[in-house]
Write a protein that binds this DNA or RNA. Structure first.
Lengths: 224, 224
DNA sequence: CTTTTTTATTACAATTTTGTAATATAAGAA
DNA sequence: TTCTTATATTACAAAATTGTAATAAAAAAG
């Protein structure tokens, strides 16, 4: 069950929305204004915040800014005025989305789900072929079996997977792996690390399908 | 300079938009339809795609789906019909945002920038106190100096930082670190790893300000 | 206060990682 | 083809990591 904090001073609208969203499977907590909203936010754990931009006791933008200081929960603005300035300011303050009243309930649900999907992808995964990095656990698997990478091997793989399809020059790779820490290693060291990585992630290390050599330039990771 | 691919079959609108967005500092590539759009997308490197939902030679949703197969570039739908079904389907197909015609140019720019900001945060950072994990490089720094963590220490730190403020039980930590790989290590091993991690990340390991003990329950990382 | 329980610290051997150098292979250039 | 250059592979010591067991310290319970 996803908890949503609704900050809205139009009581009728709030009730209406609460009813609808509850029916859609969300759990709604309603705050009537800025003070109320921030207090409730501090107490509970919310997956998403719906925020009216104009509140009786303050500005929704302020609320958003304060919320974003404490957390990176997605915030969606509801606003009566289609004034584009508000949109711009809303995004500057860290808003994740924006929907003008009167809004269509189903569109609101779509936007909420979209925000949750993006944010809630707790399990951040980077895939390439049959190899997957579970970022938040720092874990690498191949065909769902854990493979053990050393610290440097992991860093190397991370660079490739977060730049999938992009050529990384030998210089850049060496820089990122060693120069940052003030070390200077021989030029051939990279070759060895590429080999070690391939031995662990490739089905057939001699014919790599993931970690490709681009002769004279560098290497890149490709997905098929 | 950010490159934007605009897929729009309304030539007049496209010219109009191109002009405006160019003035805003973007570089625009214009495709007149689905085939054209996919071909151009394959050739170039784009930071964002603006996609008309109804194209003469196909559906924008299809284009979006195909684009999202190859890349995770942000896609914003432009659509004439304010039909909410389209919105929903757009999100299901992986769209990042949606704007109905006629749209206010400044709002469009705000939405583009918003999409770019979210997506382009190439440098994914996890901070806690003076310690920062640069996720995409698998690099950890303390006061901007690299600190060298072993593979297991990194995984442990990653678990704490991606669950900042949340208590992690000893059982859960042990499970994530060792059980996954089918290993069974003694119960005291965790104590040792916590110590090793503290020795590396804490200013005063004896009085940890980041990695707190919650006696009888586990540990948690706190910011401040 | 004493006892029990939990966590912290230390030291130690087995194992792994790390960087190098030497050699082999592959791809282009002449 | 032969020559040159770039990358791959192998083997090897120095250094770091890993898990354990023993001991110390701290917190809670009796």
């Amino acid at each position: 069950m996803r908890n949503i904090l609704l900050v809205e001073d139009d009581i009728a609208l709030a009730k209406n929305l609460s009813g609808f969203l509850t029916g859609e499977g969300f759990s709604i907590t309603h705050a009537r204004g800025m003070t109320d909203g921030l207090e409730l936010f501090g107490k509970g754990r919310f997956d998403c915040v719906l925020l009216d931009i104009s509140l009786e006791d303050g500005n929704g933008l302020t609320v958003c800014a304060k919320i974003k200081e404490q957390s990176d929960v997605p915030v969606i603005f509801l606003t009566a005025s289609a004034d584009e300035t508000c949109t711009v300011m809303g995004f500057e303050v860290g808003a994740d989305d924006y929907i003008g009243k009167p809004f269509r309930p189903r569109e609101l649900v779509a936007r909420i789900k979209n925000a949750l999907r993006k944010h809630g992808s707790q399990q951040q995964l980077l895939k390439c072929g049959n190899v997957v990095i579970d970022i938040s656990r720092g874990l690498v698997t191949k065909d769902n079996n854990e493979i053990f990478l050393s610290a440097l091997e992991y860093r190397l793989l991370m660079m490739f997977f977060s730049n999938k399809g992009i050529l990384l020059s030998r210089d850049r790779l060496m820089d990122e792996l060693w120069t940052f820490s003030g070390e200077f290693v021989g030029d051939s060291t990279l070759n060895v690390y590429i080999k070690r990585l391939r031995d662990k992630i490739e089905d057939d290390p001699a014919n790599p399908r993931i970690l490709k050599t681009v002769r004279g330039l560098g290497y890149k990771a490709v997905d098929e």
